[in-house]
Amino acid sequence: MLDKLRIVLIGTSHPGNIGGTARAMHNMGLADLALVAPRCEVYGSESHARASGADALVSNAKVYATLEEAVGDCTFVVGASARVRHLPWPMLTPRALGERLPGECAPEAAQAALVFGREDSGMTNGELQRCHAHVHIPTNPDFSSLNLAAAVQVLAYECRLAALGADDAPDTPFGVEWDNPPASHEDLERFFAHLERTLTEIDFHDPENPRQLMARLRRLFMRSHIDSMEMNILRGILGAVNKQSRALARQESHDGNG
Score class of each variant (00 low, 15 high):
residue 227 D to I: 11
residue 211 R to Q: 13
residue 222 M to R: 10
residue 83 R to W: 01
residue 11 G to W: 13
residue 190 R to G: 07
residue 220 L to W: 05
residue 70 A to C: 03
residue 52 S to C: 11
residue 184 S to H: 13
residue 147 N to V: 00
residue 112 A to R: 01
residue 60 N to L: 08
residue 1 M to Y: 02
residue 2 L to W: 13
residue 191 F to R: 06
residue 109 A to K: 06
residue 149 A to E: 09
residue 227 D to W: 03
residue 218 R to D: 02
residue 228 S to P: 00
residue 30 L to A: 11
residue 35 L to Q: 08
residue 144 S to D: 10
residue 26 H to C: 14
residue 56 A to P: 04
residue 126 G to I: 03
residue 218 R to W: 09
residue 76 F to L: 13
residue 79 G to R: 07
residue 251 Q to T: 10
residue 171 D to P: 12
residue 212 Q to R: 06
residue 70 A to R: 07
residue 24 A to W: 12
residue 29 G to R: 06
residue 135 V to Y: 14
residue 35 L to V: 01
residue 220 L to G: 11
residue 202 I to A: 09
residue 99 E to M: 02
residue 137 I to T: 08
residue 12 T to V: 15
residue 26 H to G: 08
residue 67 L to W: 01
residue 126 G to D: 05
residue 37 A to I: 09
residue 137 I to P: 09
residue 156 A to I: 07
residue 47 S to E: 08
residue 91 M to V: 13
residue 47 S to T: 03
residue 228 S to K: 10
residue 162 A to C: 01
residue 150 A to D: 05
residue 186 E to Q: 09
residue 139 T to S: 15
residue 149 A to S: 15
residue 178 W to M: 15
residue 1 M to G: 13
residue 187 D to H: 13
residue 108 E to V: 14
residue 58 V to P: 05
residue 111 Q to F: 09
residue 256 G to V: 09
residue 3 D to V: 00
residue 8 V to S: 04
residue 64 Y to K: 11
residue 202 I to F: 02
residue 218 R to H: 04
residue 33 L to K: 04
residue 73 D to G: 02
residue 192 F to K: 08
residue 235 R to E: 10
residue 74 C to G: 10
residue 58 V to N: 11
residue 172 T to I: 02
residue 102 P to C: 06
residue 86 H to T: 14
residue 216 R to E: 14
residue 249 A to K: 15
residue 133 A to M: 11
residue 106 A to I: 04
residue 238 L to K: 03
residue 101 L to Y: 12
residue 92 L to I: 02
residue 97 L to K: 02
residue 154 V to W: 15
residue 131 C to E: 05
residue 93 T to K: 06
residue 71 V to Y: 01
residue 71 V to M: 08
residue 89 W to N: 06
residue 129 Q to H: 15
residue 246 R to K: 15
residue 197 R to P: 05
residue 120 D to F: 12
